[in-house]
Amino acid sequence: MEASAARLRLAADPSHDPAPDLNDLLTRVGRGDEDAFADLYDATGSAVFGLARRVIRDPSRAEEVAQEVYIQVWQSAARFDPARGNAKSWLLTLAHRRAVDAVRHDQAATNRENRYDWSSGPDFDEVEETVTITLEHEQVKRCLDGLTNLQREAVTLAYYQGYTYAEVATALDANTATIKTRMRDGIVRLRDCMGVSA
């Protein structure tokens, strides 16, 4: 094991630059490179844990979910095809899906409407106080601010609280078709605001 780690470290050496190419790291993880896995974790751990924590809220549960995400990444990295896309997108998509599944599972017996704070609306402010402020974050906040209240509620209740669109409809006392439309309009507007290519 040690011998192979040494060999892998040697192989990894040339790409030891400050901003590691995540796709390259993930490809190497797929070949069993534990050093690459450590580098990948160092480069993405805050994003994955932060997203899980945002959705789940309970930090220790979020840590469990982040751990599951990275173990899944380790196990299935060989199936990642860098030609098809972006390692960070893959990680965050996995993390969000798992976080949402966890929060739904954990709260299956809870009346979730009670969790919704009707006085202040979805609390994106909480994101603001706990996150590392980055340029991307400023942009996200600005673009969310550019949505109508109805669009923003529909998008953030789903994405940051893990509500299904049917639950969003119940929480906001609207019908499901309306909520789906608001989500769609909201995403389209965010996409254009963020300059994501359609």
């Binding site: 924590r53 965050l92 998509t93 994101v127 991307e136 974050h137 994405y159 940051y160 995403i187 965010l190």
Partner: peptide, 14 residues
């Protein structure tokens, strides 16, 4: 890609 931007805005040191 848009949803991922939302996700990437919540980073927090593990």
């Amino acid at each position: 890609a848009t949803a991922i931007r939302l996700g990437d805005a919540a980073s927090h040191t593990p």
